[in-house]
């Protein structure tokens, strides 16, 4: 059974008085421990889909089933309980967190809000979460603005896994990181996926990153699905015009390997 099933999703906005479809009849599924990537140029609807799945905005049409339940029909306590299983990591954790909050505070929030640990137990939980994402538990006392970008993204991941989610939406989560840090964060995400069977909705403009970590890819163009399939098969041999354009535009390192 799929963790997430999106059917015929649609969202329209108005631009200069005229309606335009940001997301138009989009359907896809993600299975347990699977990474589905959304790729496409700016304005293709990637982030709108992320926000619809997270219910930060409401669709005009379509259906979202999460863990077998009609996610759009949930409200109140039932929605809050289900939301714990669906987490998110964005491009810039500095924008997502209060920069003056300590790392401990950022990780304490989800544990407290979702009643996952008593006040006495929470420091131990926080230390365990930090170790789980490869950080020194001593970092808990530091402020968010004092730690490096890579450490901050690890804290964002620790916060996301605190509530034991079945799905994490990663919206350009590694795009702002240096390449050396990026590789480590991707390795961490793969480790967590293997061990906790977390599914990822992985949004990226970078086909190289998608090819490295995603099982399947959906390529979007102007709010519609242009093509989808096995990530490597699509990237090796794209069929749609936008897929071909994205592959052609990706910079290549032409090294004469021995």
């Amino acid at each position: 059974m799929s963790v997430l099933a999106v059917s015929n999703l649609a969202k329209r906005y108005h631009r200069g008085g005229k309606p335009f479809a940001a997301v138009d009849d989009v359907s896809f599924e993600i299975g347990p421990a699977e990474t589905l990537a959304l790729a496409g140029p700016s304005g293709s609807g990637k982030s709108t889909i992320a926000r619809l799945v997270l219910r930060l905005i409401e669709p005009d049409a379509g259906r979202i089933d999460f863990e077998g339940a009609d996610f759009l029909a949930l409200s109140g306590a039932a929605l809050r309980a289900r939301r714990a299983r669906l987490q998110m990591v964005f491009q810039d954790p500095l924008a997502a967190f209060n920069p003056r909050a300590t790392v401990a505070r950022v990780l304490d929030d989800p544990l407290r809000i979702h009643g996952l640990a008593s006040r006495a137990e929470r420091p131990r939980h926080i230390a365990a979460l930090l170790e789980r994402v490869g950080l020194d538990p001593a970092l808990a006392a530091r402020a968010i603005h004092e730690i490096s970008g890579g450490q901050r993204q690890r804290v964002a991941i620790a916060r996301a896994i605190a509530t034991r989610p079945s799905l994490i939406v990663l919206d350009e989560a590694v795009s702002a990181l240096d390449v050396s840090v990026r590789a480590q964060i991707l390795e961490l995400l793969l480790d967590l996926q293997r061990q906790e069977r977390i599914a990822y909705l992985f949004i990226s403009h970078d086909l190289g990153v998608i090819r490295a970590v995603a099982h399947r890819v959906v390529i979007l163009d102007a709010g519609r699905i242009a093509e989808s399939g096995d990530a490597r098969a699509v990237i090796v041999n794209p069929q749609s015009a936008i897929g071909k354009a994205l592959v052609a535009a990706t910079p290549r390192l032409t090294r004469n390997r021995p």
Partner: peptide, 23 residues
């Protein structure tokens, strides 16, 4: 060399394979 190796190009070996992980 490290910068070159960290580049995830369209011809790089996928991380999924390096770890032997697959869904």
């Amino acid at each position: 060399r490290a910068l070159l190796d960290a580049h995830l190009g369209l011809d790089a070996e996928p991380l999924l394979d390096r770890r032997g992980a697959s869904a």
